[in-house]
Design a binder for these strands. Structure first.
Lengths: 190, 190
DNA sequence: ACGGAACGGAACGGTTGCGTCTCGTCAGGG
DNA sequence: CCCTGACGAGACGCAACCGTTCCGTTCCGT
């Protein structure tokens, strides 16, 4: 027994796409439901038929898309895994939308508890877990000492690249990821 | 020949303090002039007597405060300099205001050209230069090879700590900075 | 073919914000 | 001691936005 007729998937998809485009263009703080609806070619009612508020729409759309972005390279060597992880991260951050949206979400999460919890559980924890497995495999292979501080290593995996791409904002050299890999592996072993 | 009577410094200071508190609490996107004025115990006219618009107020206040936050430790050894740099950065980011404001400004800068240029010239460039000197001194002392990639090293100096404090959002262990220093120095030498 | 529900569009009331303006007050330099 | 101008407070016009409600239309299951 369905309660009502089904919402149209294509409309939901259009809203989702428009939401992220609008989020990238104007930021979480200034995001307006009218703008999302207009960009999606949709009536506002279609949005409020799906979510009870702007906040819930933002949180649910954000975490629903984020879960698909989990990568756990397993190339057989630490260096290969690190290099692949960086390539994946670089590719993900090459989407202009992602590069504009992610820092915005991290900033907003610091004052929006609901958003913060959604991001932590749907993005940080899974990613951190799979990255941790990556380091654990290196330890099992004997590439890293058994007492390696995994948590600390993970900060090196994402930190420098994220810092370069979002804060420094200058295009890295072509061989940047290779050089970065060398230094990250060296840091892991320290 | 003064054009008019002087603006009161204590009022300007109150506006500045209120601006940053409001910025931390609500974010750049939602920041309102009314809220800043009310928090400062000031009429809106006092603000518009000083800056022609909200945007200019934000840019000028931000860059004026930022210039004072430049540190270039020179302890005589690479490890000492790195450790001191991290301690300074950690202290700066321990201000709850800073931890809420900085990610917000970085996110906003990505879509606000005027703010971006102000941050790049008043924060990134001076900090990057003094940090570069730090690495250059290590090269002169022979602690690092002459062909060290300074730019890449700087990404390691700030990236992991910033990532940990802003994105991962879990309190680091007491000896975190020491362990971090070891790995950063190892990365520098790679 | 029918009917119900979702659809795009638009208007609504209530709220908020920007930037301007006007009050009456207060301070400080000549 | 007086006069100029900054001051706090707040009203103003205008625009934007949220969330709701109403249209007339279109789609889809039965």
């Amino acid at each position: 027994m369905t309660v009502g007729k089904a919402l149209h998937d294509d409309v939901t998809d259009a809203i989702s796409a428009a939401f992220f485009e609008e989020l990238a263009a104007t930021g979480y703080g200034r995001l307006s439901v009218d703008a999302v609806a207009k960009r999606a070619g949709v009536g506002k009612a279609a949005i409020y038929r799906r979510w009870p508020s702007k906040q819930r729409m933002a949180v649910e759309l954000t975490s629903s898309v984020a879960v698909s972005a989990i990568d756990a390279p397993d190339t057989g060597s630490l260096r290969g895994d690190v290099r692949q992880f960086l390539a994946n991260a670089r590719a993900a951050l090459s989407h202009p939308l992602a590069l504009a949206i992610i820092p915005d979400l991290l900033a907003e999460a610091r004052r929006n508890v609901e958003l913060a919890e959604a991001l932590l559980s749907s993005v940080r924890d899974p990613r951190r877990a799979s990255s941790g497995d990556m380091v654990a495999r290196a330890i099992e292979r004997g590439e890293l000492p058994a007492d390696t501080d995994v948590e600390l290593c993970l900060d090196f995996l994402a930190g420098p690249l994220y810092w370069r791409l979002t804060a420094i904002n200058s295009e890295p050299a072509p061989d940047y990821l290779d050089r970065l890999t060398d230094k990250i592996v060296a840091a892991f072993r320290a």
